[in-house]
Nucleic acid binder design. Structure first.
Length: 265
DNA sequence: AAGCTTTCCTGAACGC
DNA sequence: TGCGTTCAGGAAAGCT
């Protein structure tokens, strides 16, 4: 389940491998995988690959863009080895020198958007701020939260407020910050926001340094796993790593949450 | 308008 | 063993 660090890892690896390569064509293997006109990107050179929120943005020489969201189980696979075979390949990007990039996705939630030259990015219209920038600060969060009745966990996962944080990292961030995920966002004090900001940046940066978290499905482009799962404190755990009490297990807005009611107040 | 729930989808895990 | 049910979850749509 790729969140910010996983998408960042993929973008960096793809950049190293694919800048300057030419896309010949893109072929959908399943309906609703590719949004818009596939002919728009034919015979164009890849000029830049970068992350925005959890989107992979591949910019092309004539200004068009391929914008990819992996959702839960999407993968971009490159290079394709001779014995590679998957029944979940949803699209194939053919590039120069007889190479292919495969878009593989078991659950078919992932999407590839093709944007015209100079087209405003519809996918990005409602996105909030990037958590690794200085805009992600106490004043911003305090203002956004002060009139909200929402719990802090779904608040931090709301991509219209801050982008890139999903169900794994939000639980880690709140654990490190010693904040109970059921607290209302508007009750969070400024010194607590400061802790949340510090732990958000710190957790995401360490995860990026470790190539993301591999929980069952996530793979890097070369099929290697990330390593941050070795650092997880509460996600998928039964007991608190600090006090060893059994972790609470609840649902918030349809998403599972684990937290320690002794250590997180 | 905010904040829920439902939907999309499939494999794994579980229960009888 | 095997079949049916439940669960996992990002984001958009639907609903209250």
């Amino acid at each position: 389940m790729p969140e910010l660090p996983e998408v960042e890892t993929i973008c960096r690896e793809l950049s190293n491998l694919l800048i300057g390569r030419k896309i010949l064509s893109i072929e959908p293997l399943r309906e609703n995988t590719i949004i818009y006109n596939t002919e728009l990107i034919e015979n164009q050179t890849i000029s830049k690959i970068e992350r925005r929120a959890k989107y992979i943005v591949i910019s092309l020489s004539k200004g068009q863009q391929l914008v990819i969201h992996l959702r839960m189980t999407g993968k971009l696979i490159f290079p394709i080895t001779n014995n590679f075979d998957s029944k979940y390949t949803r699209a194939i990007i053919y590039i120069d020198n007889d190479d292919e990039i495969h878009f593989d996705d078991i659950r078919c939630f992932g999407k590839i958007y093709i944007n015209e030259q100079n087209q405003t990015n519809d996918q990005f219209a409602k996105l909030g701020i990037e958590p690794l920038t200085d805009d992600f600060n106490v004043d911003f969060l305090y203002q956004k939260a002060k009139n909200r009745n929402q719990e802090i966990k779904p608040f931090l996962m709301n991509q219209e407020i801050v982008v890139g944080i999903g169900n794994i990292y939000v639980q880690e961030i709140l654990f490190h910050s010693k904040i109970n995920p059921t607290r209302k966002a508007k009750t969070i004090k400024k010194h607590e926001w400061q802790k949340i900001i510090y732990n958000t940046k710190n957790t995401l940066l360490i995860a990026i340094d470790n190539n993301g978290t591999t929980i069952s499905d996530f793979r890097r482009v070369d099929d290697k796993t990330g390593e941050f799962q070795n650092f997880l404190q509460v996600y998928g755990k039964d007991n608190c790593p600090i006090c060893d009490n059994k972790l609470e297990y609840i649902k918030q807005a349809g998403r599972s949450t684990r937290y320690c009611k002794e250590c997180q107040k």
